[in-house]
Amino acid sequence: MIARRLVVRGRVQGVNYRGWVQDRARARGVMGWAENRADGTVDVWLQGAPDDVVAVERAVGEGPSHARVEGVETSDVHPRGDLDGFARR
């Protein structure tokens, strides 16, 4: 199991970006969350099997057609034991 934290910049708030990420993460069995931040970015935590996390991470970088992802900062982090599913915060 691996975990990654992503900070997504661009037009990613007010366009259902978090719900779109949630759908992709749930489809791959990835746990974590997507949360709007005050600075206009979206904070995403992905945790699960390496292939699934990488697949969702790639999708996060592309985003849905109504969003515009300008950049993603990615950090490897330690997996958490308190996650259950994927939440939109």
Rank of each mutant, 00 (worst) to 15 (best):
V21C: 11
P50K: 06
R80I: 05
H66C: 12
Q13A: 07
D82P: 08
E70I: 07
A38M: 15
E70L: 11
R80F: 09
G85N: 05
E35S: 14
R9F: 13
V77G: 07
V30R: 00
V7E: 06
M1C: 10
G29Q: 12
G14A: 00
R88K: 13
R4I: 09
A87D: 03
Q22M: 01
V44M: 09
A3K: 05
A38T: 12
T41F: 04
S75D: 15
P79C: 02
D52R: 07
Q13H: 07
W33D: 07
I2S: 03
A49W: 15
Q47E: 08
G32A: 02
P64G: 05
Y17I: 00
L46D: 03
V44F: 09
V56I: 10
G85D: 01
R68Y: 05
P64M: 09
G61D: 07
R37E: 05
V42W: 03
E73I: 02
L83N: 05
R88C: 14
N16H: 13
T41R: 05
D51S: 09
D23M: 10
R89Q: 03
E35M: 13
R18A: 00
V42E: 00
D51W: 13
V42H: 01
V30T: 04
V21R: 02
E73R: 05
D82E: 12
V72L: 07
A25D: 09
L46F: 14
A27K: 08
V42C: 09
R88G: 05
V8D: 08
R26P: 14
L6D: 01
V44L: 12
W33M: 13
D76A: 15
A67E: 00
R26T: 11
R58A: 06
V56A: 11
V69D: 07
A55S: 07
G61S: 01
R68M: 13
V44I: 12
V56D: 06
A49C: 15
V69S: 10
E57Q: 14
D23A: 13
V7Y: 10
D51V: 08
A38I: 14
S65W: 10
V15R: 00
V69K: 03
E57C: 12
M1S: 12
T41A: 03
T74Y: 11
S65R: 08
R68P: 15
R80T: 08
D82R: 11
A67P: 00
A59T: 06
R58L: 14
R5T: 11
G32N: 03
G32W: 04
P79N: 04
D39I: 07
R58G: 15
G61V: 10
G81I: 07
R37C: 02
L46K: 12
A27C: 06
G48R: 00
Y17D: 01
R28H: 11
E62P: 15
G14N: 00
D23I: 14
E57N: 11
A38D: 15
I2R: 10
S75Y: 14
V72F: 02
S75C: 10
N16C: 08
G48W: 02
E35F: 02
V8E: 03
P64R: 05
R80V: 06
T74R: 12
R28V: 14
L83R: 04
G32Q: 04
W45C: 01
G81N: 04
A3N: 10
R28L: 15
P64N: 04
G48I: 03
Q22I: 01
H66Y: 09
A3F: 01
